[in-house]
Amino acid sequence: MTAPNLGRRDDGEIIACPDGPFLVRGPVEILLPDGTPLPRTRRTVALCRCGLSTIKPYCDGTHKASGFRTT
């Protein structure tokens, strides 16, 4: 039993984590308003969604301490 091949075209993805950040995975460019790419040292990154991160726009886990909820 083999699943059909899916996703040969790699468009990248953004995962909205419940009560947490947006995970950005794959070939997605993150740009500043002037078009310069955001400094990025890892393939998959987490973007702050609670507004409290000390390393914005990246997530530092603070949402867990603040009780941030996405629903």
Partner: peptide
């Protein structure tokens, strides 16, 4: 680890 594990924890948990 502050930045890395904020990513890793989401992937590791889910």
């Amino acid at each position: 680890h502050v930045e890395a594990d904020a990513v890793h924890e989401q992937i590791a948990a889910r």
